[in-house]
Amino acid sequence: MLEEILKKYPQHEDSLIEILLEYQNKKTKRFITEEEIAQISNYLGVTESKVCSVVSFYTFFSTEPRGKHIIQICKDVPCYVNGRGNVLKTLEQLLNIRIGETTKDEKFTLEYTSCLGNCDGAPAMRIDGKTFTNLNPNKVKAIISEYRGVN
């Protein structure tokens, strides 16, 4: 799959982040391995350490396997003053993991994110590419069971 994605991009350094984003999104465990980094560095003609510096800088990228669904919960002030704490507690109880961890069935990873820009709907969270707003414990339960049900 990586090879096909690479072919779509010009062999310039500035394609790097685009490639990483697209590839990681399509990969089931949403992480990038050493071998893949070597392959990308070879394609773009940049050093592996440079690719690593990018992967380790941006929070979207992971070198550790993660869950099928990435749940990101905002940790900034507007969400904090609107009951983010309860939402996080509910999520941790429901998934039986702490923030930063992945469920045993590898279905969910729970992460913090910086502001999602949905402060008018605080507290907010993002699952994969979708943002959920005006959360409360009941709403969170419904959302998670929907994600569980789909799979």
Binding site: D14, I17, E18, K50, V54, F57, Y58, T59, F60, S114
Partner: peptide, 25 residues
Amino acid sequence: LRSGAGSYVCGEEFALIESIEGKPG
């Protein structure tokens, strides 16, 4: 259209430029 990858500092002019160039912000 270019997407960020999770970095607030990329809103800073030169950090943003570095990011478009495929580097850490």
